[in-house]
Design a protein around this nucleic acid. Structure first.
Lengths: 210, 210
DNA sequence: GGAAAAATGGACCGGCAAGTCCAAAGCCCG
DNA sequence: CGGGCTTTGGACTTGCCGGTCCATTTTTCC
């Protein structure tokens, strides 16, 4: 049922999504007019509604999915290999670098809370993104626990929840203040505290051996 | 220059701001029509433009200021008295309680990033809010340092930046997932790590005395 | 090579909501 | 009490923009 797209159609559809995404990053979700997308991608209104029968909302959904996936791929291969402290730091640096470059243009920014309530699908996409993101971090913490680099008292779910919150808040503060400091502080302090969890354990072990 | 408002005018203006704020909390910024505000506050279009010559944007600005102030007053008197660990916990509880109650309706949510770029004033209001918020936390940390409840190695600016990021991210994740867990985790783990900073210092002192 | 399906272009419609305007009413103060 | 201000009501204008529709061209596939 799904397919009736020729190769050309596929390409056009992809061009529209990419162009719309760029436009949204530039201007913001609710500033983008279908007309802008048409101009930016060299397409006509007929095409837009051909490929996205649900109109704007439909297109927005596709863009959101596209961008959500992008967020995670941008963190690879670091995010999936949080297996040593240098790897964690590399991941941290990638995040900072990425968001510094992105600056104030957050494509998914508009999809939260009420803004996203009108499009339940968009909400779901963001939720899914957060879920996958946190799962990857949890995985990393578990691995570090297995090697003794993170103390066994740390609750991986809770710790990853806190770390993800720090990241999201850091980005949000970057958006509103233009400063990267909050993101850096949140990452560094949270990661440091994970490292400390192992040290404390080791100290205790050391003491036990005395 | 500022005043040409009679008492009645003042009251009407306040009624409009309060009503618009309520409407925005309920429906979201970009879903609210001037007409809704009129209906909700029993006013006419003439009045709206009389009190807010700049139209919708002008009104939105007033509402934003109103809500930003509210965010901080809601945390008082705890926020200004972070002078003992019980006080910190009380503040933490207040935050959780407040955002749990607010749930998914964040009035300032829409003002960030691109959405707020069209209204530079709104951006400034949010930035100001964040700045004041962080300053209060910094103050609390400094005080705890002065009593030895937080280690001297902690950088108050950096720590408060991280904590604020955790809070913002926690609220954002509450908005998108409906779960309060992230906010709680961020608050608890960050505060715990502040407590730990004092313990480490004490341990070191203890060892120095050995 | 030709029919069916997909892709494209763009004119047109319709509704919605912000903002304008002015006339009428009410309030303040000498 | 009366003139000039503020306040109020609401009809009207206006532009915008999403969505519809159909005619034309291109592709696909037998």
């Amino acid at each position: 049922m799904t397919r009736a797209l020729t190769r050309k159609g596929e390409a056009t559809r992809a061009r529209i999504v990419a162009g719309a995404a760029a436009e949204i990053r530039e201007r913001g979700v609710d500033e983008v007019r279908l007309e802008d997308v048409m101009a930016h991608t060299g397409t006509s209104k007929g095409q837009l509604f051909h490929y996205f029968p649900g109109g704007k909302e439909d297109l927005l959904l596709a863009v959101a999915q596209h961008e959500a996936d992008q967020v995670l791929t941008d963190q690879e291969p670091m995010l999936s290999n949080l297996t040593s402290w240098p790897a964690w730091l590399a991941w941290r640096d990638r995040l900072v670098e990425r968001y510094l470059a992105q600056g104030v243009k957050c494509p998914l920014n508009g999809l939260l809370g009420q803004t996203g309530r009108r499009a339940p699908g968009a909400q779901a996409i963001v939720t899914g993104l957060m879920w996958r993101w946190q799962a990857a971090i949890t995985e990393g913490i578990r691995h570090m626990q297995s090697t003794g680099d993170i103390g066994p008292d740390v609750d991986p779910e809770r710790a990853s929840a806190a770390l993800l919150a720090g990241i999201q808040g850091g980005v949000l503060l970057l958006l509103s203040t233009g400063k990267i400091d909050h993101l850096e502080a949140a990452l560094d302090l949270t990661i440091d505290s994970l490292r400390a969890s192992a040290l404390v354990t080791r100290e205790q072990e050391g003491r036990d051996n005395e």
